[in-house]
Amino acid sequence: MTLAFVEREGSDPTEETLEMLTLARELADGDGESLDVVAFAGGSRLSVDELGAYGVDEVYHVVHDRLDGYAPEAWGESVAQLASDVDPSAVVAPGTDRGHEVLAHVGATLDVPMAANCIGIDVVEDGAYELRRNRWGGSLIEHARLEAGTTLLTPAEHEFPIEKAESTTDPSESEFTPSLEDTQFRVQVERVERADEEGIPLGEARVVIGGGRGVGGPDAYDQLEELADLLGGTVGASRAAVNEGWRPHDDQIGQTGAKISPDIYIPCGISGAVQHMVGCKGAETILAINTDPEAAIIQKADYAVIGDLHEIVPELNDTIREA
């Protein structure tokens, strides 16, 4: 059996969870075994309605009177206890902060290896996997062989498509109550502080306008902001621009910043370093504006405009406004 850790927003699985289920189902199908999921109840619980479309056979709701909010160690311990009970060949989690954190705790508790950022996995024989995983944000691929009683895996973000199963299942549900100690609650979310953010968070934006070193200074971002407003999007920046102090770090797109997955990304004056591309490879379409036709970003874009963003963007804004 493959056991997948599901993150939910309200009663629905998150997008990253659905991506992860594509990998988990491949593993389960490869083994000819079932695909079971585990989700934490508290406030609300995961709705099973949608999960049948993704081939889920069984849903375990973790129920515990102290598990209302997120507590990394307690969650990891709970998944580890469930895994010891139901003995899956693999436990898979989304390639998110929380997915990595929970699974790392599971790995530490069960004292087994964990492979993060996987892009492809083959089951070679009983209990042994040959896998490929991203290094350097995907500019290198590591081929590895993993053999463990329970194999722990996360997919690389935006590497697997959200795909429904060929045949729909009718998931059964059960509750699992872990036995937890006080010390496992020494780390938990005390409160969530809502940001009074103007505009749309980068990770959720359908349109992202990026500005790099070519923007030349903080003021010229006004043009990019205007374009973002016109298209209902938000503005991001390259690490170079953030290091110059032109934009806050929260705006950074890349390996050590935000990973975006908009319908369209419009990088302006961004050369396209490997570390930047890691952050924007989830974009459906890339339309690059750059003075240098040889820039790496042009090689990686779907559409390109060769020229100076300081001339093109204002003109583009005017044209859209008049349209």
Binding site: V112, E130, L140, H143, R145, A148, G149, T150
Partner: peptide, 16 residues
């Protein structure tokens, strides 16, 4: 060392 093994087999630089 704990239970199970993880072995790097090789690295690959994907063609762009």
């Amino acid at each position: 060392t704990g239970a199970g093994t993880y072995e790097k087999v090789r690295l690959e630089a994907p063609e762009t």
